[in-house]
Computed example of a mutant assay.
Amino acid sequence: MSDVEADGAKANGASAEGTKADEANLQDWVGRTEEASDQAYPTPARALAATLDQAGVDAGVGKPLPELWHWLYFLPIVPAGEIGPDGHPKRGGFLPPIALERRMWASGRYVFHDRVRVGDVLHKTSKITRIAEKQGNTGRMVFVTVKHTVRSGRGPAVEEEQDIVYLPMPAAFTPPPPTPAPENPAWSEPVALDPVLLFRFSALTFNGHRIHYDLPYARETEKYPGLVLHGPLQALLLLEAARRHAPDRMPARYTFRAVYPLFGHDRLTLMGVARPDGGHDLFTVNGDGHVGMQATVAWAANER
């Protein structure tokens, strides 16, 4: 998870010739698939419930897991000798060997068909569906879209599209233009951030990216002003808050997009705004009133 993040990481000493060859062959990776199996064991669910301070989650065998908690499974487990300098698995494998140094989970789109239950044997099919190159303010960017389909013995459970963006390493931290928080949210919740929360979430998702727990690395190498708050953790916190404010509803679809980096030293607030279609727009907001992540949840017609 990258952040629940897919595998692939920073290149070491890639030559200009090798970089050009990689770029020329990127489209050859479109259509590549990968299969994986796992089981929804109860211990990771209990640990995430404790990490989020949610005593009401029942992780007994057969109990349904909250939506997005399937991120606790299908983890990118590789030997220590195959870890790159940023903490991610070395480049190669399923994802293309893009030579840009920085990688982030930019956005995601979800359809929930059936709830994953504790004890379920799960199967996941992953497919690279799109690779697109763009020019941004910081230079060349490459977006890789991966579609994951998670199934249990009952049939499809979750369809997920994950957009991963690759960027050059900046010389200094230059944030994008901020988006202001909504003025009159339907609800607003503060969240206490600390390094322990970031570390525990990294551990639960087997996310070794050092920007989330190694402050000298985050500052000196990737040029961030502090430990970076995971995109998936923000997405999870938002959906959990939305479910608390609509306890009788079930998410049918969920989308999120990171628009501004948030950090472990930030003062975090979760906000929700009702939509005319019955869903909710969701926002993580820092102490300066800048939106970090935008998300939208659409509720199923049936109640829980």
Score class of each variant (00 low, 15 high):
Ala235Ile: 04
Arg267Ser: 14
Ala298Phe: 05
Arg275Trp: 02
Arg249Tyr: 04
His280Lys: 14
Leu239Val: 01
Val285Tyr: 04
Leu229Ile: 02
His230Gln: 14
Ala295Pro: 03
Leu270Asp: 00
Asp248Trp: 05
Leu268Phe: 03
Gly289His: 07
Glu303Trp: 12
Asp288Tyr: 08
Gln294Gly: 07
Val297Gln: 01
Pro261Tyr: 08
Arg253Gln: 11
Ala241Thr: 02
Glu240Arg: 13
Leu236Ala: 04
Val285Ile: 02
Arg267Asp: 13
Phe283Leu: 06
Leu229Met: 03
His265Ala: 15
Trp299Ile: 00
Arg249Glu: 06
Gly289Tyr: 00
Pro251Ile: 04
Gly289Met: 01
Ala298Met: 09
Glu303Ala: 15
Val259Trp: 05
Val285Leu: 05
Asp266Thr: 11
Val285Cys: 07
Asp266Cys: 12
Asn286Phe: 04
His245Gly: 00
Val291Tyr: 09
Tyr260Cys: 12
Met293Asp: 07
Asp277His: 07
Leu262Cys: 08
Ala295Asp: 04
Tyr254Ser: 03
Gly287Val: 03
Thr284Ile: 03
Ala246Tyr: 01
Leu262Ser: 08
Gly272Met: 00
Phe256Gln: 10
Arg244Glu: 05
His230Trp: 09
Thr296Gly: 15
Arg267Trp: 04
His290Gln: 14
Val291Lys: 08
Asn302Ile: 12
Pro251Ala: 15
Leu237Ala: 04
Gly287Ala: 15
Leu268Cys: 03
Asp248Asn: 12
Ala301His: 13
Thr296Lys: 13
Asp277Arg: 09
Pro232Gly: 14
Arg244Gln: 14
Asp277Ser: 14
Leu262Asn: 12
Leu229His: 00
Arg257Ile: 12
Pro276Ser: 08
Arg253Glu: 10
Leu282Asp: 07
Thr255Ser: 09
Arg253Lys: 11
Gly287Ile: 03
Gly264Asp: 11
Gly287Trp: 06
Gly287Pro: 06
Pro232Gln: 07
Ala246Gln: 04
Ala300Gly: 15
His265Ser: 14
Ala300His: 13
Phe283Pro: 03
Arg257Met: 09
Asp281Gln: 07
Asn286Cys: 11
Ala241Gln: 01
Leu268Ala: 05
Thr296His: 12
Asp248Lys: 10
Ala252Lys: 10
His280Met: 14
Ala258Trp: 07
Ala241Tyr: 00
Pro247Asp: 01
Gln294Met: 13
Arg253Ile: 06
Leu233His: 05
Leu238Gly: 02
His265Thr: 12
Phe263Trp: 08
Ala246Trp: 00
Gly279Ile: 04
Leu238Ser: 09
Val297Met: 04
Gly278Cys: 05
Ala295Thr: 03
Val291Glu: 09
Ala258Glu: 03
Asp248Ile: 02
Arg267Gly: 10
Asn302Glu: 14
Val273Trp: 05
His280Val: 14
Thr284Leu: 05
Ala300Lys: 12
His230Met: 10
Ala252Gln: 13
Asp248Arg: 05
Leu229Ala: 10
Leu236Lys: 02
Leu237Arg: 06
Phe256Ile: 10
Leu270Thr: 00
Leu239Asp: 00
Ala241Asn: 02
Ala242Val: 01
Pro251Met: 10
Phe256Asp: 03
Pro232Arg: 08
Asp281Ser: 13
Leu270Tyr: 00
Pro276Tyr: 10
Pro276Phe: 07
Ala242Arg: 00
Thr296Trp: 14
Asp248Gly: 15
Leu233Ala: 10
Ala235Gly: 14
Gly278Val: 04
Arg244Ile: 03
Phe263Gly: 10
Leu268Trp: 01
Asn302Met: 15
